Simulated assay, not measured.
Amino acid sequence: MLRQSLSLGAILVLAACGMNGNYRDTSVQMDSVAALDIERYTGKWYEIARFPNGFEEGCVGVTAEYAKREDGRISVTNTCRKDTLDGPVEVAEGIARIASPGQLKVKFVQWLPFAGDYWVLDVTPDYSVAVVGEPSGDFGWILARTPTLDDAQLQDALSVLKADGYDTSKLVYPEQPS
């Protein structure tokens, strides 16, 4: 049984890796924010843009909710609607830990030994917009406290991704409720 579980885990990890693309020039230096107020970061965020990935395929109306846990870690609840804003709801729950300022390690499958990098590359002073990425360039998101951003806010977020070596032409913009 353990061997079957490990084989299934390996297949899932390999499948997930194969479904992602590298959207970042990794020769470009990438830094997370020097300080992240996790209390202010917690709460609900709307996904404004993302780089394509297998686990969010067909997702619209995507939100991420972060909450402090009693053990010092952070609960992560990602919600999406499949294909349309009134489509079926899918929820993924994970747990994050702070690895260093502005950097989290997130696990959605607790029995796997791997945790994903989640780097906050930028957050506005009022914590209304955040830009998230990770060193390999397979993932990246623009998040906001509201379902939409004005053009200036979006351009600022895009410039952060570009400065960190991301090819922003590959971003997808999931539909959000108005």
Rank of each mutant, 00 (worst) to 15 (best):
K170S: 07
Y118H: 09
I74K: 07
A35S: 15
C17L: 14
A49E: 01
E39I: 07
T63M: 06
E57V: 09
G58A: 06
V123A: 11
T79Y: 00
K44E: 13
G102R: 11
N53Y: 05
C59L: 08
S100C: 08
E47Q: 05
T168C: 04
P177G: 13
A152W: 09
Y41K: 03
N53A: 11
L104M: 14
I98V: 15
F51S: 05
M1N: 08
K82F: 06
F139V: 04
G87V: 06
T148R: 14
V76L: 07
K105G: 12
G54A: 15
S178T: 13
I74D: 09
D86M: 09
L121I: 05
W119P: 08
D117V: 03
A67W: 04
V62N: 01
Q155H: 11
Q103E: 09
A15T: 15
L12Q: 13
A115N: 03
K107S: 15
A130C: 08
V132N: 09
V91E: 06
P52N: 13
G72T: 07
P52A: 13
T84M: 06
A15F: 15
V13S: 06
T77M: 10
P125M: 10
F139W: 04
C17I: 12
G87F: 02
G54Y: 05
P88N: 05
E56S: 08
K170R: 15
D83L: 11
M19K: 12
L171E: 05
L149A: 05
T146W: 00
L12M: 14
A49D: 00
D31Y: 01
E93Y: 03
K68I: 07
Y118G: 09
C59R: 03
A96Q: 10
D25R: 07
E56G: 08
G9D: 02
G116M: 12
L121G: 04
F55N: 04
A115T: 10
S178G: 14
P174L: 10
P52I: 03
Y173A: 02
A49P: 04
I95S: 11
L12D: 09
K82A: 10
E70S: 11
I74R: 10
G133T: 01
Y46V: 07
T79N: 00
E90Y: 04
A15Y: 11
F51H: 08
R145D: 13
L149Q: 01
D83S: 10
L104R: 00
A15V: 12
L6T: 04
Q29H: 01
L8H: 12
D31S: 13
R69Q: 06
F55K: 05
D117A: 10
Y118I: 09
I48S: 02
E175D: 15
G18W: 12
C80A: 02
I48K: 00
C80G: 02
V120Q: 06
I98H: 00
A64D: 02
V129K: 07
